[in-house]
Computed example of a mutant assay.
Amino acid sequence: MMAKKLRQAAVLTAALLSVSSMNAFAAENVSIPTQTMDPAIHAKLPADIKTSGVMTSVNNGSFPPYEIVTGANGLDGASADLAHALAEVLGVKIQHASVSGLSGILSGMAAGRYQMGIGPIGDYPDRQAKNDFIDFVKEYVVFGVRKGNPEKINSLDDTCGKRIAVMAGGSAEQVIRKQSDVCVKDGKPAVTVQSFSDQPTSILAVRSNRSDAFFSSQAPLTYFVEKANGQLELTGTGKSNGFGDIFQGTVVAKDSPVRDAILAGYQKLFDNGTYGIIMKKWGLEGNMIPAPGINLAKAQAK
């Protein structure tokens, strides 16, 4: 029953954050340049997409300020702006579909229901077996805690015996479960790992004192902290927290024929400054990388 109440409250929280406060977070009056279709990049698309003129991008609707669902098939945020500019360069329409969780995104990609997931989604070597990532940002993983950090959680070492919320199926969940094993091995209490399907539910659990911290990506946590009216703060910033360099990007099926077209489209947006304008509009300057690339996590240690 409590879980059901949390989910119901999270829906309301997500709606309020998505619609009423979205514009307050993004810089106002930012003009994003209109793109022109690049014939050479358009030519890289497979014949069926060139014929239909449509690509479908899938999201799970809970990764602000990148992805903010505004309706049945509506999307706002930095990724929505990037998708719009990319579509103009490719000379197609990119429409959006929402599913539940990362597993829904990846299974839908594998089944061919969607051509891409704009993301950004974490690029890790184990995911590259069935997917390719066109990386366009770098991310960091930190803790979202109640104001004043009453449980004194500043690093992974501080999570033993604590209730830590994570996104189900994500890389942060894997890291915190490994940390729990370390705690037990060292004779300390295990971490109580609380896995949720979306960001708003996780944040609500912390705000309502049902979780001690939310361990997740810095970009969305910064967004939620901004909207928490002083009730939350970030901790563990500037530390590795169990991760090496984290690259994130648009995910496509392994060796998808759209991969190289998307990469070329992103490269154009990087080169002409549109990428920088969009990232800065949404307060994501710290997540920018010099150039997009495919499967950049291959060079990172597992």
Rank of each mutant, 00 (worst) to 15 (best):
S100F: 14
V58T: 05
N59V: 07
V54Y: 02
K50P: 06
A72M: 09
I94F: 13
A72P: 08
V89G: 10
L90Y: 09
D48L: 02
I94A: 08
T70S: 07
M55I: 08
S57P: 00
G74P: 02
N73P: 08
Q95S: 13
S52C: 00
G77A: 11
G53A: 04
V54H: 04
E67P: 00
D48C: 01
S100W: 08
N59H: 15
S100L: 15
G61S: 15
Q95H: 10
V99N: 15
G53W: 01
A72S: 11
S52E: 05
D81Y: 04
A83R: 03
E67K: 01
L90I: 09
A85P: 00
S62N: 14
G71R: 06
G71V: 07
M55F: 10
F63Y: 09
G91S: 09
G53V: 02
G71D: 07
P64H: 05
V99A: 11
D76R: 15
A78Y: 07
S57N: 00
N60R: 12
T51M: 03
V58C: 01
N60P: 13
I49A: 06
Q95W: 07
G91K: 08
T56G: 04
G53D: 04
T56Y: 03
S79M: 14
D48T: 09
A87M: 09
V89S: 02
N60F: 15
G91Y: 05
P65K: 02
V89L: 09
V89Y: 03
Y66K: 10
G61C: 06
Q95D: 11
E67R: 00
I68S: 03
L75D: 06
V92T: 09
A97T: 13
Y66T: 01
G74H: 02
D81R: 03
M55T: 05
G74W: 06
T70H: 11
A97D: 06
I49V: 15
S100A: 14
K50M: 07
G77E: 13
A83K: 11
H84Y: 07
